[in-house]
């Protein structure tokens, strides 16, 4: 039976490192509070000349280089982003052009921080349709451009970055085995950028903050812990796999306290959860793909391993994938 397998992964983090102590717009006493409440010690920020497609392109090129895969053989490019280059057209179109993927269709998806797991499921469905055998999924975010620099409830959490996975059709007994995607639109105001769309157009915005990212931290934390736990349980139950059989958990790098709570709730050793949020902060939908790339490079997970990817974010949306590497 044909499966959607991972041919290569890649990631790109901008070079500019912003440490907690560099966030001088906040009182000096908050440096330790950021680490305590989020686990974030530093984050990367895009240079002034870089936008979302620049980061996406770098991640894509690194991914393709690892597999020596020619860009003209890619049939579809999906870019997950909630911080696109422009309102339209899709950020994916810039990546398609600059990558030289002349035979690929390209479009964006926006499921905020869950975009990675939605994208994995979508790539899997496209390949299992039998019509495509090479799909490039990229998740790229430049949240430093959509945050309020003076909002302590959001600004310290986030960083910029991009990750990529090249999927291809294979007959090997590995790849994406199962996915669970969930949405609760009643929570669409919990995480949002209120202005700049058709609900509140730019010419009706009275304060710049209305076009910047906001989230209700306490509600997000409770949602992520409860639904992250539930969807991982649902995933392994539906796939008829024991949690103990999973070698690595690659979860959205939102907050170390969420990851520790997932570990406790699922009764899984915390060292099975890959963590890099201390270095990069929350890179929104890019976080799972960056973490997967780094987890493979670090040997945290490897060929033949069963891996769970899990993410949660605005919408509210959440989901998980079961993948054999």
């Amino acid at each position: 039976m044909e499966t959607c397998t991972i041919l290569a992964t890649g990631s790109y983090l901008p070079h500019h490192i912003v440490r907690n102590e560099d966030l001088t717009q906040f009182p000096p006493t908050t440096t330790k509070l950021i680490a305590l409440k989020t686990g974030v010690l530093s984050r990367r920020q895009a240079d002034a000349h870089q936008c979302t497609s620049d980061l996406a392109l770098e991640a894509a090129q690194r991914c393709l280089a690892k597999s020596d895969f020619p860009p003209e053989r890619i049939q579809g490019i999906i870019v997950s982003t909630s911080s696109p280059d422009r309102m339209q057209p899709a950020t994916a179109t810039a990546v398609q052009h600059r990558l030289g993927a002349v035979n690929a269709f390209a479009f964006d998806i926006n499921s905020v921080c869950s975009g990675s797991v939605y994208g994995i499921s979508l790539a899997d469905a496209l390949i299992l349709s039998g019509r495509y055998d090479a799909i490039l999924l990229i998740a790229s975010e430049v949240y430093s451009r959509i945050l309020n620099k003076k909002d302590f409830s959001t600004y310290p959490y986030f960083g910029d970055g991009a990750g990529a996975i090249l999927f291809h059709a294979s007959n090997a007994e590995k790849g994406v085995l199962h996915s669970c995607l969930r949405t609760d639109g009643s929570g669409r105001d919990v995480i949002c950028v209120p202005g700049g769309g058709t609900m509140l157009p730019f010419d009706q915005i009275e304060r710049p903050e209305a076009a910047q990212f906001r989230m209700k931290g306490k509600a997000v934390f409770e949602f992520a812990v409860s639904q992250g736990t539930a969807v991982i349980r649902q995933l392994v139950e539906e796939a008829d796999v024991d949690l103990e059989a999973i070698q690595g958990f690659i979860c959205h790098q939102a907050n170390i306290n969420i990851i520790q709570a997932l570990s406790t709730n699922l009764d899984i050793a915390v060292d099975k959860f890959f963590v890099n949020l201390d270095k990069y902060g929350n890179t929104a939908s890019a976080s799972v793909l960056i973490a997967l790339d780094e987890a493979i490079a670090a040997g945290h997970v490897g060929p033949g391993d069963l891996v769970v990817t899990c993410a949660f974010g605005g919408g509210l949306s959440w989901g998980a994938n079961l993948i054999r590497l």
């Binding site: 906040f26 908050t30 409440k37 003076k150 909002d151 302590f152 409830s153 931290g217």
Partner: peptide, 25 residues
Amino acid sequence: PDWDSMAAVNLQMYLQDAFQKEIPE
């Protein structure tokens, strides 16, 4: 509603600006 320790820092900065006074956390 939604009060938490991160919001406390935002309020601390707002009050310091508004009242021109050091507000202890």
